[in-house]
Write a protein that binds this DNA or RNA. Sequence first.
DNA 1: TGGGTCACG
DNA 2: ACGTACGTGACCCAC
Length: 872
Amino acid sequence: MAKKILLLDGNSLAYRAFFALPLLTNESGVHTNAVYGFTMMLQKILEEEQPTHMIVAFDAGKTTFRHETFKEYKGGRQKTPPELSEQFPYLRKLIEAYQIKSYELPNYEADDIIGTLSLEAEQAGDEVVVISGDKDLTQLASPSTTVYITRKGITDIEKYTVDHIREKYGLSPEQIIDMKGLMGDASDNIPGVPGVGEKTALKLLAAHGTVEGVYAAIEQQKGKMKEKLVENEELAYISKKLATIERHAPIEISIDELAYTGPDHEELIKIWNELAFKSLLEKIEYTTEETVKKELEFHVIDTFEASILEEEMAVHLELYDEQYHTCDLLGVSLATEGSTVVIPMETVQNSEEFKAWLSDPSKKKFMADSKAATAAFYRCGIELNGVDFDLMLGAYIVNPSLTYTDLSSIVQEYGYTEVSTNEQVYGKGAKKAVPAGAALHEHLARKARAIWAVRPEVVRKLQENDQFDLYDKLELPLATILGTMESFGVKVDKDQLTAMGKELSEKLAEIEKNIYWIAGEKFNINSPKQLGVVLFEKLGLPVLKKTKTGYSTAADVLEKLEGQHEIISQILIYRQLGKLLSTYIEGLLKEIHEDGKIHTRFQQALTTTGRLSSTNPNLQNIPVRLEEGRKIRKAFVPSEPDWVMVAADYSQIELRVLAHMSGDERLIEAFRNDQDIHTATAADVFHVPLEEVTGDMRRAAKAVNFGIVYGISDYGLSQSLTITRKAAQEFIDRYLASFPGVKRYMTDIVAKARKDGFVTTLMNRRRYLPDINSSNFNLRSFAERTAMNTPIQGSAADVIKKAMINMAEALEREGMQTRMLLQVHDELIFEAPPNELEKLKTLVPEAMESAMALDVPLKVDFAFGDTWYDTK
DNA sequence: TGGGTCACG
DNA sequence: ACGTACGTGACCCAC
């Protein structure tokens, strides 16, 4: 079979990629643009050329035999930027993962290695493609050798064949060196003949063929040109020699050793993950089906036998949808060191022995999403206990910035590629379907096997980062608690919601009519585009703010226009009521299950800070600030007759966390004295006694406190207080002067982020901030604010998570019927029988306040009532 | 599918 | 000079 040999100029391509692409980084701050560009080019080339043999040649060291000829060769070159140097080790690793040979030779450049190999190939009659960013290499073109030179980008390539070179320069490939001899090459510091550029060189060569030819016929030149040529004859010959690629370098590698057999996919994915090449990884997700998976042996258990059960097993429950509260359960798979089994759902249901094993806390289960399994099993009357490992939570703690949806993508983070994505197995959209038995069983088997295989690496990483306790003592037990809370669900009074909806619809119709009448036309008020036209073109109101796509009609803009036209207040009311109706009445009604309850799903591996989030529906953003909206909470009721709703919320938890973490004396003192923190802040900032703090002063101080927590900026504060930036900056300066500990904390945390590349919370939750050293102002500023905010928000999340574990244990220990239902970042919602209320009044605040010992006390407000609305 | 808007902490 | 408060999810419109 004919060979097709690809010879790559590693240094030149890395340089090209580096300067062609913006400075990308992965989450630990390593620059990746050169490696990324190189990879993109490699992917393209491999696909298009289908080579049989490949090599990447590198320059070795700084000096070469050319320096003996001309010591200024490549002189005056800028030192390789450190951002590029640091990428070479990764480039080497990448090339290794592709299983491509690389080669370098002391005293020679990559060019010479390529030149030597291409000559060998030519003589053997093989086809050669040379790839470089350096046009010098075009001298190697021949009938069997094509030279690819990258243009502008890195994947855009110009192909230099013998014909192409003739068309472009009117030269043969061999004459390229003569051209360089005459015109030189600034980038390599090859001098050439001063005053001769490309045009003159080409003209001379067209007439005389070579440098030697030009000098043989030197008498044909005249005037200035002749003078320059004669004066610099030696320089021309030296230059030609420098530009000539050595084709007989003493290399110790031959073409036969360069056979290319394709990449080591596992290694490749590992390094792509390390470098965060997301788009490439996504692409491979769709092609992994083609990548050969190792065969996996497994058994399908139709008649259950207890002998398959062991003390420690990977357990996977396959769920047919994200919405595990309603979706089908497709079966269970188990894996241990030696064996893998798949148990169809029917067998699970019919085996009391297996159910007993699942609920036995002493049998250790290694799972991928134990919360989902807890809730889904609960629905079938199966209790899950003894969860000892949760892959998704472990991976989330290692890096919360990544997305954790599919088991396949999680294990891929750890270089494991033996499991398909759900999309590959089930398809998506209308085409989604459960495949026939064998394919389904294999998918399940592979998942259990993957959990077993990847667990040690995740545990190792958690221990290495000193995060094992956070994972094992906080997140893991919380998963079961959350699964139970979701499964309990919250009872919702459907009739109440429907009645509110009816009332709202009528009001809304009236306002709508009114708006049309004022505007003089019917239009879609919900369309910012149409509304913008009415307000700013038809009614001629001033445009205060624009969005990317047109006029901004956001509430803060409309509020500033309120005095100017009667339509504005109508629109604001319409928006407010419309939101209530569509999201909170109609939206919630759609989510009520057959049991009359809403079962939200708490996402435990989603936010970058460590908070939970709530979906389908979101029960963490039920209205409370405005009375009209707050009434929605009247529909959230206890699920048992005569029971009550209980709410307990932390007072100022984030500022207390800040006081603790910063050690600011003044802030700590204010909390120890149980002062109203905004009033105390105002007194300090405005230098007045507490009793002289006015409402406006307190309001300003409150905004500054918020700003501090968010990672303050003068602009942000000026927006929130509608004051000038200058005034906002003065406020901030006065605040920081009053609270020097806070100021020090902010400076230190940003410095720490710069140094380590990440910030941490009280329980060692970690968030990487790759942009913290970015040269882009916006990216860097954002990372700095995040560095200030994440430890505060994240530590508060740590605290309430710990409190939830305390609460669940306390309720269990005391044998109480009270159920924990919801968490809303700084508050916990329960339903309770009235006879437990007295006990709860002390138990709940105690459990929450003792969650973590800080340098300031934690304070909890406790309330109860017949509905959620009444817990105030 | 992305942008605008708005609900919460 | 840059153009932003931190963290979420759901709905609607327009493409």
